[in-house]
């Protein structure tokens, strides 16, 4: 049976249609609290349908805006592709908000933004901090309202490979037993809290280079703002609004460059700073 669910993320309204109960459940879990009950039509439609091939095997066909339908070999791959498409479309949506490439962690003395290029280690470090007792709002993307200065994490599924899963389990993070089955781990499945606006007190910019031991250097608020602007997905800021909004974001924060070392030592070094 095919079901359709509607969501509204930061004003971006879309529907998700699927005949896979597990897919509907995981997407509902990911976007819990963002269900769209308004009467208007969604702006975009996404679908994930399980299909039988001639040899009896299953494939998962996804349809997302702007690209031809495609078939995936696993439910996790299909869900990840749909979720990535929703996130990309949200970032492009003209909602007047700024999309910041970075994860939001809720800390005991103020919240953290972990920014950095893809592959810099934001997810693994976020989850290592979760294993140390902090709460993760999101590991990859946050949405900044330039009018209010409010920064809210955008929930995304965690991409955790087997190596990271072993490291995190070693730190005591309780990972779902079926983690490697569908490879679509929502923050809720890790027992992490529902996103709330961040009270940013720390900005860490993760450098891609790994060192034998973690290294953390203070940087100026202007340097941090400049790096965040490069990680902010609204492209050019012809009116300076984005610059003002990002500058306001770093204005209340202590800012650092971080080179990761061994995972536990890196998480502990960050904790020492944010708990001091």
């Amino acid at each position: 049976m095919t079901n359709e669910h509607r969501y509204s993320l930061f004003g971006y309204r879309f529907s998700f249609r699927t005949n896979v109960a597990r897919a509907a459940e995981l997407v509902a879990e990911l976007y819990a609290g963002s269900e769209d009950t308004s009467a208007g039509s969604p702006e975009n439609h996404y679908s994930l349908l399980r299909q039988r091939e001639q040899d009896g095997a299953s494939c998962w066909r996804i349809e997302v805006p702007g690209t031809p339908p495609s078939d995936k070999r696993s439910l996790g791959d299909a869900l990840s592709a749909v979720e990535a498409s929703i996130t990309a479309d949200l970032a492009r949506h003209p909602h007047g908000l700024h999309v910041v490439h970075g994860g939001v962690i809720y800390g005991p003395r103020g919240d953290l933004l972990l920014s950095g290029n893809s592959g810099a280690g934001k997810t693994t470090l976020s989850l290592a901090l979760a294993a140390r007792g902090l709460c993760v709002g999101g590991d990859d993307m946050a949405v900044l309202d330039p009018a209010s200065g409010s920064l809210r994490p955008h929930p995304r599924c965690f991409h955790i490979d087997e190596h990271s899963a072993r490291l995190l389990a070693g730190l005591g993070l309780r990972l779902p037993e079926d983690l490697m089955d569908d490879q679509f781990v929502t923050p809720r499945r890790l027992g992490l809290t529902a996103p709330r606006p961040a009270r940013l007190r720390f900005v860490f910019f993760l450098e891609p280079e790994r060192l034998p031991a973690p290294r953390i250097l203070s940087q100026s608020q202007a340097q941090a703002a400049s790096q965040l602007l490069l990680q902010t997905g609204r492209g050019q800021f012809a009116d300076g609004e984005g610059v003002r909004a990002i500058a306001a974001l770093t204005a209340g924060a202590r800012c650092f460059q971080l080179w990761s070392g061994e995972l536990a030592a890196t998480a502990d070094a960050v904790l020492r700073l944010v708990e001091a």
Binding site: S220, Q221, A222, Q223, A225, S226, L229, Q236, F237, A238, D239, G240, V243, R244, A247, T250, A251, G252
Partner: peptide, 26 residues
């Protein structure tokens, strides 16, 4: 050029013509 002074004394200089922001020290 729009200058954004920050509490730690550093600042951002934003050039609307090139849509570029330059971080500068205190």
């Amino acid at each position: 050029i729009e200058a954004q002074p920050l509490p730690d004394g550093s600042g951002l200089l934003f050039d609307p013509a090139s849509a570029t922001a330059y971080p500068i020290s205190p």
